[in-house]
Simulated scan of single mutants.
Amino acid sequence: MTESPSAQPFPLGDSAFYEEEHEEFREVAREFVVRKVEPHYASWDAEHMMPRSLWTDAGEAGLLGLAVPEEYGGMGLTDYRFRAVLDEELVRRGALGAALAFHLNDDWVLPHLLAHGTEEQKERWLPRILTGELVTSVAWTEPGAGSDLRGVRTRAVRDREDWVLTGQKTFIGNGISGDAALVLARTDGRTDRAGEDSFSLFLVHKADSPGYEVGRQLDKMGVKASDTAELFFEDVRVPGSNLVGTQGGGLRQIQQLLPQGRLAIAVAAAAVARAALEETVRYTRDRTAFGSRVLDFQHSRFEVADLVVEVEATEAYVRRAVHAFNAGALDVVGASKAKYWASERAKAVTDRCLQLHGGYGYILEYPVAQAYLASRLLTIFGGTSEILRETIGRAVAEG
């Protein structure tokens, strides 16, 4: 018996994963994306920049800083399924750049402020993150270090109550549009190989920091709407009150909170793969060749069948990681597995979906072409697949 095409569901939500409150949040997120993002995203992509109004609009809609506790004006939504909903709605409308920009704020910087910020820091910064007045970036990567954070050469030297920061960072998302960067700097005063206690984290504000210079905007192959830049720090005086966490605790803090950042990329990658698949099924149902729909050719059906199973398996794996995170049980290895698998699958799925579009898949106005370019970032951002495989393999070797 042959099943009808309608038997293949593409649900906007998953009743086994999402609950009523998540679907209510989805309506808010969808309305925001349809009104404030989708009509303008192509022009932002062409301009290589999203307007600051995007952040204040998102703040007004209650979509920023979801985990900020109520005492600081937030909703305290620590259930990561809410973040997954927002990613899905942005990615479905081709706005992965906006999703990743929000990730930098909510999944890479905010967790450090919540876990290690002082009460004064939380009162000073969290309400402004909620409203979109404070946009942040993560300034860890350097030209000569890449994924090797122990190779970071940026230094901070104590000067009475302040620190004097000198160094260079690269590949910094929100580097131009952002107001402050969470900077990893060496604070042990040594010049030999860095140890676990060699680094600290500082939230450095651009407007208040002479010597904080934004370099050239880097011209990426995809997700162009999300600005990426080089940052330079030349004897920047940073107040001691901007040290996030403990002196010498920077690497441990990053390791502790890395699972959320990698989970965020896994969630986005699964959404990219799903969106590319949905678009490809629509295209192959409508497109005809040699008198038949493309999806009526056996090879196309087999290819789509493989993609459906691959995407659904990826979603199931990532959702298991989300449940583990919500339960406080997702460690670095588990998050690395989810990020490695989902990002590699997104890359492979978008490539095969582009092929099923034929020549139209190579035209940038088609969503699948944009998804193909965007997905290539996901195996690099937040830890390359090679680094993740090393992390996973070392854990296996150590038993």
Rank of each mutant, 00 (worst) to 15 (best):
E161D: 15
H299F: 09
D227T: 08
V318R: 01
D79C: 13
M49I: 13
Q255A: 14
A346Y: 00
G249R: 06
R190I: 01
P9S: 12
R35A: 15
T136G: 02
D188F: 01
L218R: 08
E133K: 12
E344K: 01
P5K: 02
L126R: 05
G361M: 11
Y340R: 15
E119T: 07
A181H: 01
M49A: 15
P11A: 14
G291H: 07
L12T: 10
A369E: 11
T154L: 12
S200W: 06
D14Q: 13
G383S: 07
M50G: 06
M75G: 07
Q253E: 09
S336H: 01
P11E: 12
G151L: 08
V152Q: 04
T314M: 06
A329I: 05
L149I: 13
D162G: 04
S209L: 13
E31G: 14
L64K: 06
F202N: 01
S375N: 02
L243W: 02
L114N: 08
G195P: 02
M1S: 15
A269I: 06
L113T: 09
L201P: 06
S43K: 11
F381G: 00
A225L: 08
A346N: 06
L96P: 00
A99Q: 13
N242S: 15
F233S: 01
G97H: 14
L263M: 10
T78L: 14
R237H: 11
G291V: 09
C353V: 09
V368E: 01
A327K: 14
W341P: 00
L373A: 03
